[in-house]
């Protein structure tokens, strides 16, 4: 079998998109936002002591792999996840599963992905894509970031599956093995919302959730004085890149999450969720405004156009919005 019939649908977030597309292949329709929400993908953390590309790490989502695993588990879908020490074993297993006609999700590093947009080819190990066939050492790929279907050679695929460093994929591959006929989304939605609400307002640790946003705002005020204008703008740029760059669908996943709440309101028939989904949308627009304004400070050799205090104040508004939204969401009942 060369190519499995597989519908390529672009998505905002790679892992939620892969989850949605793999399940669509198994005749279960679930949107990208729904997969993201049930998988409790939304998050915030600011880890100043952990440097990535020479700047503190900011994250707007949970660890890789969690969205697929949580979403499928909540919906009673059985899955198989493999990791391999030996690259040859992992490729043999991949071929075996593909030859059974099952498309496979892969975690890969992006630096050596030949079809990837050049501007994103950094050492980022948390990318996800689907393989939907192979022929004569060429693998057929549906990557939700790409506006077209792509291909990769055996050697390149081994390389990206065995990229090293933080969150090294170690050949991780995954696919659904059993999808029940009638799936009730409701329990999964409620559990997913509770989990995310807890992550955002229930963790008593200053760098996580809403507290983390406030901590970032506080640190940001000191950047220019402490680091000088150039490094301050680089640190700011790093926050914005994590918020807006590849695989967030914009504004640090806040749009996707709002779209999820909107769908959840329909499924659960709870109109108050629609109000919160609109509040989340307004909040996402605020984040996007923050990145528009912030990016003015990131032009080469440019003097800061917006003061860091002003930007930090914008973050505090977002933190307040999210505190309000998630405190309400935490009270959700089935």
């Amino acid at each position: 079998m060369a190519k499995i019939e597989f519908e390529h649908r672009q998505a905002g977030h790679c892992e939620s998109g892969v989850t949605s597309n793999l399940l669509h292949h198994h005749k279960f329709d679930i949107s990208e936002p729904m997969a993201f929400g049930i998988g409790a993908g939304l998050f915030f953390s600011y880890l100043p002591f952990l440097k990535m590309q020479h700047a503190p790490t900011t994250s707007f989502r949970v660890w890789p792999g969690q969205v697929f695993e949580r979403a499928t588990k909540q919906l009673g879908i059985k899955t198989q996840v493999h990791k391999f020490r030996n690259p040859k074993d992992s490729m043999d297993k991949l071929n075996e599963v593909l030859d059974q006609g099952i498309p496979v999700g892969l975690q890969v590093g992006t630096f050596h992905l030949p079809f990837f947009p050049p501007e994103y080819r950094m050492h980022y190990n948390m990318h996800n894509m689907v393989v939907y066939g192979h022929e004569n050492g060429i693998y057929f790929i549906s990557d939700t970031l790409m506006d077209r279907l792509v291909e990769i050679t055996y050697d390149d695929l081994v390389r990206v599956r065995y990229a090293k460093g933080v969150f090294a994929p170690e050949g991780r591959m995954y696919y659904p093995t059993y999808v029940p006929k009638n799936i009730d989304l409701r329990p999964g939605i409620i559990k997913g919302i509770r989990k995310t609400a807890n992550n955002m307002v229930g963790v008593p640790f200053p760098l996580i959730g809403v507290k983390g946003i406030r901590y970032l705002a506080k640190s940001m005020r000191k950047w220019e004085k402490k680091l000088g204008p150039e490094k301050a703008s680089y640190y700011l740029g790093q926050v914005l890149r994590m918020e807006e760059e590849v695989g967030t669908a914009g504004a640090g996943f806040r749009f996707i999450y709002g779209a999820f709440l909107n769908e959840a309101a329909d499924v659960l028939k709870q109109e108050w969720l629609r109000e919160l989904s609109f509040e989340m949308g307004e909040n996402a627009n605020k984040w996007r405004e923050f990145s528009y304004k912030g990016s003015r400070n990131c032009k080469k050799r440019g003097k800061p156009e917006e003061s860091y205090d002003y930007l930090a104040d914008m973050l505090l508004v977002c933190a307040d919005n999210e505190q309000k939204i998630f405190k309400k969401l935490a009270t959700i009942k089935g």
């Binding site: 672009q10 506006d147 914009g250 949308g281």
Partner: peptide
């Protein structure tokens, strides 16, 4: 950078998501 078009979500009070 114009190598690839990506998906972006938007929200507007009138149009929704």
């Amino acid at each position: 950078y114009t190598y690839n078009r990506e998906i972006f979500y938007h929200f507007d009070k009138e149009k929704g998501y």
